[in-house]
Design a protein around this nucleic acid. Structure first.
Lengths: 238, 238
DNA sequence: CGCGTGTTTGACCACTGTCAAAGCTGGTGG
DNA sequence: CCACCAGCTTTGACAGTGGTCAAACACGCG
């Protein structure tokens, strides 16, 4: 990477940084993104981004913040199905809005903007396609995580996924990142109870695998951790 | 539905029947599908439909049989992530092939054919879009199933999903359908061990909820079952 | 300073997993 | 047509992971 590109990558806002990391963007793409990011719309934490409110359900780009797709059961149980953060796309699926009973909730204050049209640049279209493929990969990862991993493995695996994703949009530093979920929400994502998740976290702490204070998570040795649970990073090869 | 349409719906092959049930197809769409179904390609059970083999990874339509997306862990554990059967689309995602370590396996002998291009008919394009949305809905359902339901609920919920899907392609009769999975595979889909799944099945049998002989599953009272676990059918409204 | 939300801990329980062996069943070859 | 085999299902005994209920702590914030 040239030093110019390097500097660009370091200075660009997280959303652009992520998409540019998926596939190098050309100037029209970056201009379009910058432009879109100028017309950002703010949502409070806990706000719902259900398509219904948004009438047409125009595709969105997350400029800042975390959202989750949540499914509620009739008796109060709930499952966090997937997450999206800065640089992730929302609503790129035509019928997404009408999917049975899953809602999208802001986990933090969130800034979203309309997603620039893919036709503006082939590199942009390619970035969107890769992003979509990653979404699906994350869903698959979520299924195998809760279907076949132990509580400890689930915790580590999801934290590593967060770490990787925040690395690609530039929001993670050396083994650490900001993770705005409460333990209860995290438990609902991992298919555990918050009590058991808490115990699992304690164990991981005592094992020296991680530090977790406030909203800051620090993984002592991400690579070793990944190895210890046999995790393959989620990548779209080529 | 007119009597002509009704008869058509009863006589059409499962794949066409499914897509026509998602959204009414026009004549060009049906012609294209019939044509494609004439150039069908057979795969043996256990064969892998990995994209790699198929070079370009052209989109496919399943004419007959079941396939599953499987994820294997380093230590032999595995998770069935999703299923596809007659009328379902495969590989409609550009980058699907490069997704980390999930493969598509034929669970039965399978007949596939190239998917007619969506540009041939707007109704066809619409059917594809709905189908894709359903795929995602099924994935979401799978996550909440594994993450938040008990063994008994998981079993019933998945069987009901199969029943619904086989109804839309005409392969299910009054509360009964052919289900080619072994208990071990089903367990791998539900995030259970085959031993525990077997015990769960015994209980359901003794409760009179279902019959299961050979490959034939019979749900005594699907609606009551769905109600008893608070299941919402997966639908794409509108 | 006092809630309210989130975290931590304890005691106990039950659902689900493990290991191992015994029945079935459908298909194959003699 | 029967015997046999391989794969699948079923059962038992036992272990353990993860759930439940309830209470005590922190901590941030008005």
């Amino acid at each position: 990477m040239s030093s110019v590109a390097l500097r660009f990558a370091e200075l660009a806002p997280p959303a652009i940084r992520r998409l540019n990391n998926l596939t190098p963007l050309d100037v029209p793409a970056i201009d379009a993104l910058r432009n879109a990011l100028g017309r950002t719309h703010r949502l409070e934490a806990r706000a719902e981004l259900t398509r219904e409110g948004k009438s047409t359900g125009e595709p969105l780009l997350i400029a800042e913040g975390w959202v989750a797709r949540v499914r509620h059961l009739f008796d109060g149980r709930r499952q966090l199905v997937s997450f999206a953060m800065a640089g992730d796309l929302l609503g790129n699926c035509e019928f997404e809005g009408s999917l049975a009973s899953s809602t999208i909730v802001a986990l933090t204050p969130v800034h979203v903007c309309p997603l620039p049209d893919a036709s503006l640049s082939p590199t942009l279209a390619r970035a969107y396609a890769i992003s979509k493929a990653l979404d699906e990969a994350h869903l698959i990862a979520q299924v195998t995580r809760i279907g076949r991993l132990s509580a400890h493995e689930r915790l580590v695996d999801l934290l590593l996924e967060f770490y990787e994703r925040l690395q690609t949009n530039g929001q993670a530093g050396e083994g650490r990142f900001r993770m705005p979920l409460t333990q209860e929400l995290l438990a609902d994502a991992l298919g555990l109870t918050s009590v058991h998740l808490n115990r699992t976290i304690q164990l991981a702490r005592r094992a020296g695998e991680l530090t977790w204070t406030g909203r800051e998570v620090r993984l002592t040795d991400p690579k070793a951790l990944a190895l210890s649970i046999g995790r393959m990073p989620v990548r779209v090869s080529n």
